[in-house]
């Protein structure tokens, strides 16, 4: 079902994702880590496209890059002070956690390759999902949808409350 072009795309995306992930995990510069997030998000969005989830892919780009990533960049640039270019992003306990993580990935790999996964016949052609998602969100998944919007409202209010207090502290000093 996967054409050679999709194989090629998968390889390219994997390269991007692994490079970005390593930069996030190992870079000594926090700003590089934050910018590497872009690569990871774009790579995962590419996977979504390969897996036929076109709407999720675009939403991933829109929300993660347009919203979350810019938010992170703001936070990184604001907490470091504008003049401080060489940010350190030190790590602790690398000697203990690195072997553990290697063991974890080996275990997960073994799990993935030995388990008999349920695969429904042959995955079909990639079809547009937007209309179906819209219908499902307003019928079957209406309650989670509304709960999510309440959660977002709560987040909005809470974030503004937290951030405003900080502004007042600055004004006093």
């Amino acid at each position: 079902m996967m054409t050679p072009m999709q194989d090629l795309a998968f390889a390219a995306l994997s390269g991007i994702v692994i490079a970005a992930g390593c930069l996030i995990a190992f870079s000594r510069n926090l700003v590089y880590s934050a910018f590497a997030l872009l690569g990871a998000f774009v790579g995962v969005a590419g996977y979504f496209v390969l897996l036929g989830a076109d709407f999720v892919a675009v939403i991933q780009l829109l929300v993660y890059i347009g919203g979350i990533m810019v938010l992170y960049l703001f936070a990184v640039l604001m907490t470091s002070g504008i003049g401080d270019v060489t940010l350190t992003n030190r790590s602790i306990a690398t000697k203990a956690s690195a072997p553990l993580c290697i063991v974890l990935i080996i275990l997960l790999g073994k799990l993935i390759y030995t388990t008999e996964w349920y695969v429904a016949a042959e995955p079909t052609e990639i079809a547009p999902t937007t209309a179906a998602i819209g219908n499902a969100l307003l019928t079957e998944y209406l309650l989670p949808f509304e709960l999510a919007s309440v959660l977002l409202l709560g987040t909005l209010v809470g974030t503004v409350a937290l951030a405003r207090r900080g502004v007042k502290v600055i004004k006093k000093s």
């Binding site: 994702v17 690398t94 993580c101 790999g109």
Partner: peptide, 16 residues
């Protein structure tokens, strides 16, 4: 899984 483990490693080892 690779993305997941890299994320876990970042969470565990970062000080920032």
């Amino acid at each position: 899984a690779v993305i997941f483990v890299l994320g876990i490693y970042t969470v565990v080892t970062r000080k920032n």
